[in-house]
Design a protein around this nucleic acid. Structure first.
Lengths: 199, 199
DNA sequence: CAGCCACATAGAACACGTTCTATGGTGGGC
DNA sequence: GCCCACCATAGAACGTGTTCTATGTGGCTG
C-alpha cells in the first residue's frame, strides 16, 4: 500500500474509513443504550467489519470508546468556545463555560456515561485521556484567566481539570447527580479563582 | 439465627468471619498480583467458601474490593493521623499529610492499584466510595485548616478530595507516575490554600 | 504472470465475572 | 422430636470481551 516513501505506516483510505465507521458505530450504540450496549460484536456488525478488525484498530473496547470521546470533546470544545462566556467575574465566566459543557453532556446522558466510563478505565489505550480533559479545560478557560500570572493560571486550570474529571467519573458511575456536579464545580471555581481575581 | 429481637438481619459470627476471610483473601491476592489476580474463583478458594457465597456478601468483584479499600483507608487514616504533620504553613502541612498517604500506597502498589480501580468502577456497590475518599481527606486535613472559615474549609477539602481522587485514578490506570501525583498535589495545595492562609 | 504479504473475514475458542440448579446442613418454632 | 426456612456448597451454565485459526483477497515485486 501507499507505494511512496519507506517512511512509516500510512493508512489507506479504506482503513481510515473503516476506523471512522467503527467510531460512528460506537457513538450510535452508546447513544442508544450506554456502555453495556456497546458490544463488540454489535459494533462489528453495525460497522460492517469483522470482529477481529476492531482489534486491529483499537486495543480494546475502552480504547475504541476513548477514541470516540476524543472526537466528541473536540466537537464540543468548538461549540462551547463559539459564544463568549456570561458573567462579571472570572469565576462566574468559568462556571458558565463548565455548565455549558455539562449541559451538552446531559443532552446525551447515556453516551456521555459510556465515554466517561471508558476514559476512566484501565486500558483506554495509548490515548492521552488525561491530557485530553486538561486540554479541553485549558482551551475553554485560558482566555478567561488571561489576566492572572501564567503559573497560577496553569495551576488553577490543572486543579479544575481534576475537579471536572473526578465529578464526571462519579456521575458516570451513578454516585452523584448532575445537580451535585454543577454545584461542586461552582464552589470549586469560586474558592479557587476568587482570591486571585482582585488585584 | 440470633434468637433475640425481631429487629432486623443481624449477622451470625460465622457470617462475619466468612466476610472477613473474603476481604482478607482479596487483600492477599491483590497484593500479589493486582486487580487481575483477584479472580473470584481464587478468592473463593483462598477464603474457603463457595463462589456463590461471595455474591451473597458482595454484589460484585468491585464491591468486594471497595469494601477492602474502606478497611484499608481506615487503617491508613489512623496511622497518618498519629504523628503531627511537618511544615510551617497550612499548605506545607497538608502536603506532608497527603505525601505520607501516597507513600503508604506506594509501598503496596499492586494492591493500591487494585483497590483504586475497583473504587472508580461502575458497580462498586452501595459503598460510599466517594464519601470515603472525602472523609479520609477531611479527617486528615480538618485540623490543619481549622483556622479558616468553615465554609471555605469545606470547599477546600472538597476540591482537594477531587484532586486526590483524580490523581489516584490516573495513576492506578498507568497514566501518570507517582512523582507526577505528588507534584500535582503539592501545586494544588499551594494554589488552593495559600491565599486564605494569611489574614 | 507468479508469488508474496499484509490485511480482512468468519467463526470457533477462551477467560473470567456472574447467575442458576440441585443438594446438604443447621437452628428455631411447633 | 420434627419440620421448615434459610443459608452454604459444588458445579454447571451463561454473557461478553478478547484471542486464535483457517481462509480468502488485492496489490506490489521480481
Amino acid at each position: 500500500m501507499g507505494a511512496e516513501e519507506g517512511a512509516e505506516a500510512e493508512f489507506t483510505p479504506e482503513q481510515l474509513e473503516r476506523r471512522q465507521r467503527l467510531i460512528d458505530a460506537a457513538f450510535e450504540l452508546g447513544a442508544e443504550g450506554g456502555y453495556d450496549a456497546v458490544q463488540m460484536r454489535d459494533v462489528a456488525a453495525t460497522a460492517n467489519v469483522a470482529l477481529a478488525t476492531i482489534y486491529r484498530n483499537f486495543s480494546s473496547k475502552d480504547h475504541l470508546l476513548s477514541a470516540a470521546m476524543i472526537e466528541w470533546t473536540g466537537r464540543l470544545r468548538g461549540r462551547v468556545a463559539q459564544r463568549p462566556p456570561k458573567g462579571d467575574t472570572a469565576s462566574e465566566q468559568m462556571i458558565d463555560v463548565l455548565n455549558r459543557a455539562c449541559a451538552a453532556m446531559a443532552r446525551q446522558p447515556k453516551l456521555s456515561v459510556a465515554l466517561i466510563r471508558a476514559l476512566s478505565s484501565a486500558d483506554a489505550g495509548p490515548v492521552g485521556g488525561r491530557s485530553e480533559v486538561r486540554k479541553s479545560i485549558a482551551a475553554m478557560g485560558d482566555g478567561i484567566l488571561s489576566h492572572l500570572e501564567p503559573q497560577v493560571r496553569l495551576d488553577i486550570l490543572g486543579v479544575l481539570g481534576h475537579v471536572w474529571y473526578s465529578n464526571l467519573v462519579w456521575w458516570a458511575n451513578g454516585r452523584s447527580s448532575f445537580d451535585q456536579v454543577t454545584d461542586e464545580l461552582g464552589r470549586a471555581c469560586h474558592v479557587l479563582i476568587d482570591p486571585y481575581d482582585r488585584p
